[in-house]
Design a protein around this nucleic acid. Structure first.
Length: 469
DNA sequence: TTAGGGTTAG
């Protein structure tokens, strides 16, 4: 069966997000000979001559998540003399590492494609996410005219590289701003841990003429960012602020999308307002894995561990595939609810059942689980056999358990590992030193304090404070 | 056909 190039091109563009179908269309394109360039064919129209390029572009865009496949297609494209154009590079650059990105940058330069703003803005983003801020800045400065997307990419570049002052200065110089510009700065403050500033900037947005005169309207991303900033602060004021935004959303938005709903669940969940979190969860029409994760975490960290586990079962019934974060939330529920058997089984089968490889956080949870329940030796065995070096959080969880259950020798074995790691967290050392002191092993306690000093780890002085409400 | 911002763990 033969198909025209135009038909297959349309099909490719429609099936971009369907990997299985993409493969089938790809093979149809090859077997129909559409990827071969025929520059001297007598009857070929201009669109025929460009067809291989258009098809390659569509395929690259479809495969761009798998960078190696997209790159392979790019090399075939060059070998088949189908000339890449400005549509070819953005999807390639989006999933490229820095060394590869640099090579592609020189390709775009050689082919004179840098005047199309799509190319430099993707390059700028590439350098920014790899923390090459001067490179990002140079790409930005060498573009001769104002382009709002490029400015927004630069705002984000400053944000992810911790230069919020520069981001705000650029924002104020911009002759025009859109919802991306505002959201990028709201998010930028949050990325840099300045949650209060993020909320204030959102407030500035809402009272700015851009929004008041309906030139710009906050969208789901804007709300999600600012709600996440509220959730990262504690206290009634942050909750009230989040509620106020929720109220505004109810009045102004037609529907509760996945991202907005999830950030509301997270807000109410973190603040302990579980009934509100549940209300939002029930009101959502579409729930994705992250939505369930937010709800399971909320239940797990507010004393409703059994319900968190029930939620996990329900989630699986909805044919949703748990991810790494789900497993952290569920293991947390097991640890806090003392569901040792269930937690351990889940930890041991997570690779087999869900294809999720345990990372540091899962180890932290399972050590906490065993430690709380007094299975200190079993926890030690897991720490000893970890496929990578345990970090301070895992060792800290283990040491906490050793202290509660008086397992001094095991604690010392692990503490020695910790000293080798030269972690800068003083808390765990103080814990171990206190363990020795409690058992009146004063010499051990003093030795450890000396080792701490020698490792250059500083004890942060403790303090107490009164919080007026 | 291609660019820039977003939710969930600890």
């Amino acid at each position: 069966m033969s198909y025209s190039g135009e038909f297959l091109l349309q099909l490719t563009q429609r099936c971009k997000k369907l990997p299985k179908q993409m493969k089938q269309i790809h093979s149809l394109i090859i077997t129909n000979g559409h990827l071969l360039h025929h520059p001297n064919a007598p009857s070929s129209s201009l669109s025929d001559q460009w067809m291989p390029t258009l098809l390659y572009n569509a395929l690259i865009s479809g495969y761009h998540i798998h960078n190696h496949k997209a790159l392979l297609l790019f090399t075939h494209m060059l070998a088949n003399q189908a000339p890449p154009n400005s549509y070819t590079f953005p999807p390639l650059l989006k999933s490229s590492s820095l060394p590869l990105g640099t090579i592609l940058h020189s390709q775009t330069l050689k082919r004179g494609l840098l005047s199309d703003p799509f190319i430099p803005s993707t390059l700028l983003a590439l350098y920014a996410r790899n923390y090459f801020l001067p490179h990002a800045r140079r790409v930005f400065e060498e573009f001769p005219m104002f382009c709002i997307a490029m400015c927004n990419a630069m705002l984000n570049a400053f944000s992810i590289n911790g230069h919020m002052e520069a981001a705000v200065a650029l924002f104020e110089r911009m002759p025009q701003r859109d919802v991306f510009s505002w959201t990028t700065v709201v998010n930028g403050f949050a990325l840099n841990g300045k949650f209060g500033a993020s909320i204030r900037f959102f407030g500035k947005m809402m009272s700015h003429k851009d929004v008041v005169q309906c030139l710009v309207k906050p969208n789901e991303a804007t709300y999600a960012c600012v709600l996440s900033s509220c959730a990262n602060l504690y206290g009634q004021a942050a909750l009230d602020c989040g509620k106020q935004i929720h109220g505004y959303v109810v009045m102004n938005e037609a529907k509760l999308g996945v991202i907005l709903g999830t950030s509301l669940i997270n807000l109410y969940g973190k603040m302990g307002s579980l009934s509100n979190a549940e209300k939002v969860f029930r009101a959502m029409c579409v729930r994705e894995v992250c939505t369930w994760n937010a709800m399971i975490s909320s239940l797990a960290s507010h004393g409703r561990e059994k319900e968190a586990l029930d939620m996990f079962e329900k989630m699986k019934l909805h044919v949703l595939k748990p991810n790494s974060i789900t497993l952290v939330a569920v293991l947390t529920a097991c640890a806090r609810g003392n569901f040792v058997k269930e937690g351990l089984e889940l930890f041991r089968s997570m690779w087999h059942d869900f294809g999720i490889e345990p990372i540091m956080k899962h180890y932290g949870c399972v050590i906490d689980l065993l430690g709380r329940a007094g299975h200190v030796e079993e926890a030690a065995e897991i720490v000893r056999n970890m496929p990578f070096q345990p970090d301070a959080s895992v060792l800290g969880a283990f040491l906490g358990a050793c202290r509660i259950h008086g397992a001094i020798e095991l604690g010392e074995e692990i503490a020695n590992k910790m000293l080798k790691l030269k972690t800068q967290h003083c808390g765990q050392y103080v814990l171990l030193s206190s363990m020795n002191a409690e058992k009146e092993r004063w010499d051990h306690a003093a030795d450890l304090r000396r080792e701490i000093m020698e490792a250059g780890i500083q004890k942060i002085p403790a303090y107490s404070m009164v919080h007026w409400t």
